[in-house]
Lab assay of single mutants.
Amino acid sequence: TYYTVKSGDTLNKIAAQYGVSVANLRSWNGISGDLIFVGQKLIVKKG
């Protein structure tokens, strides 16, 4: 599943929405910090 980042989104918010961990979101998307951008597509695997 792909999720497109919207204004106001955070990794924590997206992780909670999908029932996954922030660590997994980072791993699946090659993100090291907490910086995400509006319009960015993130890979999300269902929890």
Rank of each mutant, 00 (worst) to 15 (best):
D9V: 02
G19W: 06
G30A: 14
Y18V: 10
Y18S: 07
Y18D: 01
Y2V: 09
G8A: 06
L35Q: 11
I31Y: 03
N12M: 09
W28C: 03
K41S: 14
G19V: 06
F37T: 12
L42K: 00
N24S: 13
A15T: 02
L35S: 10
L35V: 10
I36M: 07
V38Y: 06
V5K: 00
A16N: 13
Q17G: 08
K46W: 15
G39C: 04
V22I: 13
G19H: 13
T10L: 04
V22Q: 07
S21F: 05
G47A: 14
N12I: 10
W28D: 05
K41H: 14
L25P: 00
W28G: 02
A23N: 13
G30C: 04
Y2W: 14
T10W: 03
S32A: 15
G30Q: 11
N12A: 10
K45N: 12
N29V: 01
L42I: 12
Q40A: 06
T10F: 04
I43R: 08
I36G: 02
Y2Q: 11
Q40R: 05
V20T: 10
N12C: 04
F37D: 15
V38K: 08
V5R: 00
I43Q: 09
S7L: 09
G33S: 09
T4R: 07
Y3D: 02
Q40N: 04
D34S: 12
R26D: 02
K6L: 14
Q17Y: 14
T1R: 08
Y18M: 11
G33T: 13
V44K: 02
I43L: 13
S21P: 13
R26N: 06
F37S: 09
Y18W: 14
G39A: 04
K6Q: 11
K13F: 15
K13P: 02
K13C: 04
I43D: 04
D9T: 02
G47F: 10
Y18E: 07
N24G: 08
D9K: 01
I36L: 13
K13T: 15
N12V: 12
Y18N: 12
L11Y: 04
S32I: 15
G30W: 06
I14F: 02
Y18F: 10
A15S: 07
L25F: 02
G8L: 06
K13N: 14
L11G: 01
A15C: 05
L35A: 13
N29P: 00
S21G: 06
R26G: 04
G39N: 07
S7G: 13
V20F: 04
T1E: 12
D9G: 01
N29D: 00
G30K: 15
G30L: 11
V38H: 07
V22D: 06
T10G: 03
L25S: 00
V38G: 05
A16Y: 08
N29F: 01
G8V: 04
I14L: 08
A16F: 14
A23W: 10
G33Y: 09
N29L: 01
T4F: 10
S32H: 12
I14Q: 00
V44M: 08
V20S: 07
D9R: 00
R26E: 12
S21A: 08
G19Y: 08
V38M: 08
N24M: 11
G47S: 11
D34Y: 13
K41V: 11
Y18T: 13
Y2G: 06
L35P: 07
S27H: 10
S7D: 11
G39W: 03
S21L: 08
K6W: 03
L25G: 00
K45C: 04
K6R: 09
I43V: 09
V38F: 06
G8H: 07
V38T: 12
A15M: 03
V5T: 05
Y2E: 12
S32F: 12
L35G: 11
N24F: 09
G19F: 08
Q17P: 01
K13G: 14
N29A: 02
F37A: 14
T1D: 14
T4Y: 13
Y3P: 01
K46F: 14
D9E: 04
L11I: 13
L11K: 00
D9S: 02
D34I: 07
Q40Y: 04
L25R: 00
A23Q: 15
L11T: 03
S21C: 06
Y3N: 01
R26H: 07
Q40L: 09
T1P: 08
D9Q: 02
L11E: 01
T1H: 10
W28T: 03
G39H: 05
A16G: 10
I43C: 05
G8T: 06
V22R: 05
Y3F: 04
W28S: 03
G39R: 03
N12F: 10
G33A: 12
I36S: 03
W28R: 02
T1N: 10
Q40V: 05
W28V: 03
V22F: 04
G47K: 14
K46S: 15
G19T: 08
A15N: 01
A16V: 14
V22N: 04
N29R: 00
R26K: 15
N12D: 13
Q17C: 05
S21K: 07
I43S: 06
T4E: 15
Y3L: 04
